[in-house]
Design a protein around this nucleic acid. Structure first.
Length: 863
RNA sequence: GCCGGGGUGGCGAAACUGGCAAACGCGGGGGACUUAAAAUCCCCUGGGCUUCGGCCCCUGCGGGUUCGACUCCCGCCCCCGGCACCA
């Protein structure tokens, strides 16, 4: 071989091996009869027009390293990729460049595909998914229908952010400081009829399963926060009927139950037909301190209870609130506002009449949309009481203060400058017969007491809302429902799926909060599947998170066109063995896909209820200390680097720059380190191949090899790629320091361990070393299957006969001595005492204590 | 505010179950090769002191436990992420 040919030329070999992997269908496992199936999944990308971002590539490369590692260990690895191409992101971009998404998306997908192949990622291109393909979204619609049948999909009114300039609904994430992120117009609130999935029904299971699934802890925590379970009680406050109030027919939120008075508690004349205000509280123990009530301005009872003279003020306030966007309203640092309705409710514990206010700090969407205000023990209520001069009775006190009082039921404590919400070592005071009880216990007793009259019950409340899947947009799968005057909402029959999204020239969002599809008569005009009469299609499309809620179920079954998932394939490959993705999807996607999986399990379509056996998040890649973003102009385009250094060097650099699960900083300078490493490795292996010597002439190198195998294997298991690469570097340095050409036995395992990181170079070197079969280029489903070529280490070869151990005097290292491995305490102690520097520090004293950690350390303690 | 994850050389980072802090790499300094540069190779590289034997200091800050602490405990500071007028 001439010297010229022996040079490391990434471009040449990368293309060669990519072609060969394709030709031999190396990345396509036998989906029907795999020996050791392993489903290695990564979060599929949104195919943007800008092309593959280095952040995407970072994520995919890390997942690919794991897949390739499993493959080399003999697993048949299924590693698919797809494209999350529906959604507002694509649609907005299409609007901006004035090109139809149906034209844009295929070009973007082609570009992504080219880049991903170039990066040498081990995808099975015969099983991809494109969410905008009718062959895919047909089944997205099918899933909607299954939820609809199960009563888990319902249409209801809900307040949403509305941008009056863009004339569209905005997600909370698209509202920045009360303004539309695109045009800067202040955003308002609108109430629209929307489709919801009742994910709240699954809140408990979604929470409970987090106990056992093997996921990154941070991700589990994020989900727990998002679900937001609170334990407390539902309490009922009867409205005091005054002359002006007309009892009206009960609405959904009105409890029809009459409040009857308990015999041991002050009673009041309450009309049997009067409504009650239900509140949720986590602190039922503080009910004696509830000095007023607050309803959300949108609360259905507001109109009914408001007195005649307050009506004008209440209406004005409600209008003002309606004009405020949800994001702005939820800011905690705003000063409190509200108005008195003039109505009164009876505190069921004290029997006192307390005023009913409305205020925008109470949200209709959480709990019952109404609260009992306990200003002494809740900061928000406190601020409100201060603002409007409402009483602040103290009903909880530190044990010491409470016990010092003559009568805990009559303690004079002034409210301080803020609410005291502690639940630690506190007792109830001024709380009737519950005074003197420990707070938590008192709360339980109070609930039990009031429950006797139907005025209280224990309750668990979730922060999680039902999942709104309606989008008044164009670029998504139409929701498969038909509205018929005679039959109402009728699901589209399965055999009529897909409801195809028509090509619409003008797909701009519509003024009136309806989808652009509402302008397309040929789309919405249809006949009722039930009665055959004229009917109108639902014109909203579904959320992209529904597309991604099940894509991983589709991959193994993409060739089944008459059913969403093939049972046998699903049983073989699912649940996913390893899922790797970004923390930004810790809640939405990962929660929604768990929900969809659970529902399909309950409906008997799946045997498992959790979709991913293991989930690991990868970190964020930043650029010289700053987040990469278009506006900063510091986006790294991978193509340039792959052109200059080759895919292998680029992959190795991305994986070396920091711990994969924590992310890292992309700096141009750092890449030369791994380039040098791969070049040196290439040269050493080429020379070894040329000389062709076998064996392990050097004990130190052999030992280092076994240590390296142990280290690298563990690192791959834990996705610690940076230290795995460092270990390979160390081994190469050791092998080269022997001052001779390495032997074949010395470099073969090195090449295998390098293969997940730099698969093209490894294949080429493996071939050069005379590997009978390529590392990856044989289809795992054909020929010799489940081939395990990963090297193994031997315990007895890990250690030398002699070890170096530090000798400490009083915990400070004073010498390093060489002793036989496994030497006992006496031997080591004597060797240590022979050392001059050690003796000097002992100053002739006999050690009081000798700490000996075999083969690790000796510590002589003299004081 | 609550819940996570962090804070280690000039820089990116290592350090297993409490046992030699700084592996690996970048950058920097010196040298070899070269007419020269690049590339490559070798040596040095946390700070301070030194009689060149060594000695002292150092993992955000302050305490503690221990023969021994980057690691465990208590109290603080700062950075990143999630949640947040959530009753």
């Amino acid at each position: 071989m001439s010297e010229r040919e022996a040079m490391y030329d990434p471009q040449k070999i990368e293309e060669k091996w990519q072609r060969r992997w394709d030709a031999e269908r190396a990345n396509e496992p036998d989906l029907d009869a795999p020996e050791r199936p392993f489903y290695n999944l990564m979060m599929y990308p949104y195919p943007s027009a800008e092309g593959l971002h280095v952040g995407n590539l970072y994520a995919f490369t890390g997942a690919d390293l794991y897949g390739r590692y499993r493959r080399l260990r003999g697993d048949e690895v299924f590693q698919p990729i797809g494209f999350d191409a529906f959604g507002i992101h694509s649609e907005n971009y299409a609007l901006k460049v004035d090109t139809h998404p149906m034209e844009l998306i295929p070009a973007n997908i082609a570009n992504f595909t080219r880049q991903l192949r170039r990066a040498g990622i081990m995808y099975d291109w015969s099983h991809t998914v494109d969410t905008t393909d009718p062959g895919y979204y047909r089944w997205t619609q099918w899933i909607f229908l299954r939820l609809y049948e199960a009563g888990l999909a319902e249409k209801k009114e809900a307040p949403v952010n509305w941008c009056p300039s863009c004339k569209t609904v905005l997600a909370n994430e698209q509202v920045i400081a009360g303004e539309c992120e695109r045009c800067g117009t202040p955003v308002g609130t609108r109430t629209l009829s929307q489709w919801f999935f009742r994910i709240t029904e699954y809140a408990d299971r979604l929470l409970e399963n987090l106990e056992w699934i093997d996921w990154s802890e941070t991700t589990k925590t994020a989900q727990r926060n998002w679900i937001g379970r609170s334990k407390g009680a539902l309490l009922r406050f009867p409205v005091v009927v005054s002359g002006g109030m007309e009892p009206a027919a009960g609405s959904a939120a009105v409890s029809g139950k009459a409040a009857s008075a308990a015999s041991d508690r002050p009673t009041a004349s309450t009309d049997a037909s009067a409504p009650t205000i239900d509140v949720f509280t986590t602190r039922p123990d503080t009910i004696f301190g509830a000095s007023f009530m607050v309803l959300a301005p949108e609360h259905p009872l507001v109109e009914r209870v408001t007195t005649e003279e307050r009506r004008g003020a209440v209406e004005a306030y409600r209008e003002k609130v309606a004009a405020t966007d949800l994001v702005q309203r939820k800011k905690a640092d705003r000063s409190k506002s509200g108005v008195d309705t003039g109505a009164r409710a009876r505190n069921p514990a004290t029997g006192q009449e307390i005023p009913i206010w409305i205020a925008d700090y109470v949200l209709m969407e959480y709990g019952t949309g109404a609260i009992m205000a306990v200003p002494a023990h809740d900061q928000r209520d406190f601020e409100f009481a201060r603002e409007f001069d409402l009483p602040i009775p103290v009903v909880v006190a530190p044990r010491q203060a409470a016990e010092a009082a003559d009568d805990p039921a009559d303690v004079a404590i002034e409210a301080g400058e803020e609410a005291v919400a502690d639940t630690g070592d506190v007792l109830l005071v001024n709380s009737g017969r519950f005074s003197g009880t420990e707070a938590e216990e008192g709360g339980r007793a109070i609930v039990e007491w009031l429950a006797g009259d139907g005025l209280a019950e224990p309750r668990v409340q979730y922060r999680l809302h039902d999942w709104c899947i309606s989008r008044q947009r164009y670029w998504g799968p139409p929701i498969p429902i038909v509205y018929c005057d005679a039959c109402g909402a009728v699901p589209v029959p399965d055999e009529d799926l897909p409801v195809e999204l028509p090509y619409v020239e003008d797909f701009r969002p519509e003024e009136g909060g309806v989808s652009p599809l509402a302008r397309v008569a040929s789309f919405y005009e249809t006949t009722c599947p039930e009665c055959g009469g004229p009917a109108r299609r639902e014109t909203d499309v579904s959320d992209t998170f529904l597309d991604s809620g099940w894509y991983f179920l589709r991959y193994p079954s993409t060739d089944a066109d008459d059913r969403p998932i093939d049972d046998a394939r699903t049983e073989t490959w699912l649940p996913v063995d390893m899922y790797i993705g970004g923390e930004e999807h810790a809640v939405l996607h990962l929660l929604y896909s768990r929900f969809i999986t659970m529902v399909l399990h309950d409906l008997d379509y799946l045997e498992f209820e959790e979709p991913y056996d293991r989930f690991r998040k990868h970190g964020l890649l930043i650029k010289e200390g700053a987040k990469m973003s278009k506006s900063r102009g510091n986006i790294v385009v991978p193509d340039e680097y792959m052109d200059r250094y080759g895919a292998d060097v680029f992959r190795a650099y991305l994986m070396f720059l920091g711990p994969y699960q924590e992310g890292g900083d992309f700096r141009d300078r750092g890449i030369v380190g791994v380039e040098r490493f791969l070049t040196r490795l290439w040269d050493s292996v080429s020379q070894a191949a040329e000389e062709g010597r076998e064996g392990f002439p050097d004990e130190a190198v052999e030992r280092k090899l076994h240590r390296t195998i142990r280290q690298v294997t563990g690192d791959f298991e834990g996705l610690s790629y940076n230290t795995a690469i460092a270990a390979l570097m160390e081994y190469l340095n050791e092998a080269r320091s022997a001052g001779r050409t390495p032997t074949l036995d010395e470099v073969r395992p090195l090449v295998v361990m390098l293969a997940p990181v730099a698969p093209h170079a490894a294949e080429e070197l493996w071939e050069e070393l005379g590997g009978e079969e390529p590392l990856f280029a044989s289809a795992p489903g054909g020929g010799e299957r489940s081939r395990n070529v990963w090297p193994e280490w031997e315990e007895e070869l890990l250690h030398a006969d002699e070890v170096e151990i530090p000798v400490q005097v009083n915990g400070k290292v004073r010498a390093t001595i060489r002793v036989e491995r496994g030497a006992d305490r006496e031997t080591v102690r004597e060797a240590a005492l022979a050392d001059e520097n050690v003796r000097r520090h002992l100053e002739g004293a006999e050690p009081l204590k000798v700490i000996h950690v075999p083969d690790r350390l000796l510590n002589l303690v003299i004081e």
